[in-house]
Simulated assay, not measured.
Amino acid sequence: MMNNGLPDQFGLTAVVPAAGIGSRMGAECPKQYLSLAGKTILEHTLLRLLAHPAITTIVLALAPDDCWFETLVLARDPRILRVLGGSDRARSVLNALHQVKSDWVLVHDAARPCLTSADIDALLAVGLTPDGAILGSRVRDTMKRSDEAGNIIATVPREALWHALTPQLFATRTLKGALEEGLALGALITDEASAMELAGHVPRMVEGRADNIKVTRPEDLALAGLFLRQQQDELAITKATKEQP
């Protein structure tokens, strides 16, 4: 048995949709290729996934005109398979799922470089069910609803509200069917859980670390760098504590 309680033969594939251009960053290249602590954001993301012992393969969905990934050292890692991304996230993930051989799949945002193995463990502990599970963080701020003109029309109770994070964990065949059905209906699919919900499933919410942020705007880049440094400090302290007699 592995340390996380999964059998040695358990194989898990991670799907990473990375065909977007990240226009809100206002950068000259897609946001996943921006530099962060000596690597691109995408490199951090992929290395975090590959560091987990349950993940044997990553299927990476890239834009047709992507000229950046080939320049990275990770482009030669045999554990990373490349597929053509689609016109939106759902189609990119579906294209990737056609190449997935494992029974279970994790879908993770390319621009979430601060994922920890502990959060993957927490997701696996409860998500290997027909309905699957996703990582999330509880909403902590007061939530307001406005009209189209920006006028506040209601204060929304936050007790049952979550920020949806990734990875999101589902049975491969079930997720594939849910995405195909949702796309055929022309439904708005904002993440994999929304496709599963439309298909009648009830995914579990697993509380993850709030520092598992998605780099979307320029200010997020500095914040992600801070979180990476803090996580390195945490690991160093943990290691030093274990080594003490």
Rank of each mutant, 00 (worst) to 15 (best):
Met1Val: 12
Gly5Ala: 08
Pro7Phe: 06
Pro7Ile: 09
Gln9Ser: 12
Phe10Cys: 07
Ala14Gly: 09
Ala14Arg: 08
Ala14Leu: 07
Val15Gln: 10
Gly20Met: 10
Gly20Leu: 08
Ile21Tyr: 15
Gly22Glu: 05
Gly22Trp: 00
Gly22Pro: 04
Arg24Ser: 15
Arg24Ile: 02
Met25Trp: 02
Met25Leu: 13
Gly26Gln: 14
Cys29Glu: 11
Tyr33Pro: 02
Leu34Pro: 01
Gly38Lys: 08
Gly38Ala: 06
Thr40Ile: 06
Thr40Lys: 06
Glu43Cys: 11
His44Cys: 11
Thr45Gly: 02
Arg48Met: 10
Leu50Asp: 09
His52Asn: 13
Pro53Cys: 05
Pro53Tyr: 06
Ile58Tyr: 00
Val59Gly: 03
Pro64Ser: 06
Asp65Ser: 08
Asp65Trp: 09
Asp66Tyr: 06
Cys67Asn: 05
Cys67Trp: 00
Trp68Phe: 13
Trp68Gln: 15
Glu70Ile: 14
Leu72Met: 12
Ala75Gly: 14
Arg76Asn: 10
Arg76Ala: 15
Arg76Tyr: 08
Ile80Ser: 01
Arg91Lys: 14
Ser92Val: 08
Leu94His: 02
Asn95Cys: 03
Ala96Ser: 13
His98Lys: 11
Lys101Gln: 15
Lys101Phe: 01
Lys101Trp: 07
Val105Cys: 04
Val105Ser: 02
Val107Met: 02
His108Leu: 13
His108Ile: 12
Asp109Gly: 12
Ala110Gln: 05
Pro113Tyr: 00
Leu115Val: 14
Thr116Ser: 15
Ala118Met: 10
Asp119Tyr: 03
Ala122Arg: 15
Leu123Phe: 13
Val126Gln: 13
Thr129Tyr: 07
Gly132Met: 06
Ile134Lys: 04
Ile134Cys: 10
Ile134Met: 13
Leu135Ile: 11
Gly136Gln: 04
Ser137Val: 10
Arg138Ile: 05
Arg138Ser: 12
Arg138Val: 10
Arg140Glu: 14
Asp141Ser: 11
Thr142Pro: 01
Thr142Met: 09
Met143Gly: 00
Lys144Thr: 03
Ala149Gln: 12
Asn151Asp: 07
Arg158Asn: 06
Arg158Leu: 01
Ala164Asn: 10
Leu165Asp: 14
Gln168Lys: 00
Phe170Asn: 11
Phe170Tyr: 14
Thr172Asn: 04
Arg173Asn: 07
Leu175Cys: 02
Lys176Gln: 14
Gly177Phe: 00
Leu179Asp: 00
Glu180Val: 06
Glu180Leu: 12
Gly182Val: 05
Leu183Ser: 09
Ala187Lys: 07
Ala187Asn: 03
Leu188Tyr: 01
Ile189Ser: 07
Asp191Ser: 11
Ala195Lys: 00
Glu197Asp: 06
Glu197Trp: 01
Glu197Met: 14
Gly200Tyr: 07
Val202Ile: 03
Pro203Thr: 09
Pro203Phe: 11
Val206Asp: 02
Glu207Gly: 04
Gly208Ser: 08
Gly208His: 05
Ala210Gln: 12
Asn212Arg: 13
Arg217Ser: 14
Pro218Leu: 09
Pro218Glu: 05
Asp220Cys: 03
Ala222Asn: 08
Ala222Cys: 03
Ala224Tyr: 03
Gly225Met: 15
Arg229Lys: 15
Glu234Thr: 10
Ala236Ser: 09
Ile237Phe: 04
Thr238Cys: 09
Lys239Gln: 15
Ala240Met: 12
Thr241Val: 13
Lys242Arg: 15
Pro245Trp: 02
Pro245Arg: 07
Pro245Gln: 07
